[in-house]
């Protein structure tokens, strides 16, 4: 007598052993293939930098507040890790700049420019640069020290021209630690949001020693150009302008219309 063909019915408690064997082989194949696939994907991945975002950890920094060109807190070198700049860029919570928060604080407490203050926030740092997120918004101001008043622009040095230098516009908050990666196409939307929200745009390029160099971008007259450069963020671009070193950061004064996209 001819053997009856096994038939599978899902609502029955057991499946025929022929079906069981086929399904078992399929599952084993998948369980073997998945780790190989995972290894291939991860092995081929671009690496991540060692930049840090101290999420959940609050840090208090005391230093001179500089409101322009972008909000920076100049702290004592001894307060910072040895490999980090003591000019800490201030940014807001989320994807917003610090200017709105500092203006709100100043509306309550008076002008803080050039004054020694203690601010509390979350540290972001990498590649020698430091950024402080004012996580608690207006409650980020801890103390206004009455002792010393500094001149507002005391650290302006060097000025040179910059001609068709190739690099990428990033947002410093994500790039220096919040996001990994904080650059390139997959981060484009986030960088656009951050820069649109008032975080200073930073031009990242490489020098002759193949090291990264960072320049905060401003208009030719020092005005903010965040809105004008949104479509150039996270792209390979070439930029020309005038550079200046001020308050621990390089600034690049440019005409945003002259930024050129470079086809890859």
């Amino acid at each position: 007598m001819k053997k009856e063909k096994p038939f599978y019915v899902g609502w029955q408690e057991e499946m025929p052993k022929e079906h069981k064997s086929t399904v078992k082989k399929f599952i084993i194949l998948i369980f073997i293939a998945l780790p190989i696939l995972a290894f291939s994907i991860i092995y081929a991945q671009r690496g991540f930098n060692n930049h840090q975002f101290e999420l959940g950890k609050s840090t208090e920094l005391t230093g001179i507040y500089h409101s322009s060109p972008v909000p920076v807190l100049e702290v004592l070198k001894t307060e910072m890790k040895p490999d980090l700049s003591n000019y800490v860029m201030l940014v807001g919570y989320g994807k917003l700049g610090a200017e709105g928060i500092m203006e709100d604080i100043e509306a309550l407490k008076g002008d803080l420019d050039g004054k020694r203050v203690t601010l509390k926030g979350t540290m972001i740092y990498g590649d020698g640069k430091a950024v402080l997120e004012l996580t608690k918004k207006t409650n980020s101001l801890i103390t206004i020290h009455k002792d010393v008043i500094y001149p507002i622009v005391a650290n302006k040095i060097l000025s040179s021209n910059f001609d068709n230098v190739v690099g990428e516009i990033v947002d410093p908050k994500c790039y220096f630690g919040v996001m990994k990666p904080g650059e390139g196409k997959i981060h484009k939307s986030c960088a656009t949001r951050c820069i649109s929200g008032g975080i200073p745009p930073v031009f990242k390029t490489r020098n002759f020693q193949n090291e990264n160099e960072y320049f905060i971008l401003l208009g030719e007259k020092g005005e903010k150009i965040n809105r004008q450069i949104l479509d150039k963020i996270a792209e390979k671009v070439s930029i020309s302008g005038r550079t200046e070193f001020l308050n621990g950061w390089n600034y690049l004064y440019i005409n945003p219309e002259t930024i050129k996209l470079i086809e890859e």
Binding site: G94, H187, K188, S189, C190, R193, C194, S196, G197
Partner: peptide, 18 residues
């Protein structure tokens, strides 16, 4: 990660940031 806590609604941001 990429769209919240910014200056526009995150869903709007998905369609307008790039």
């Amino acid at each position: 990660q990429f769209h919240a806590l910014g200056d526009v609604n995150p869903i709007v941001s998905i369609f307008t940031s790039n």
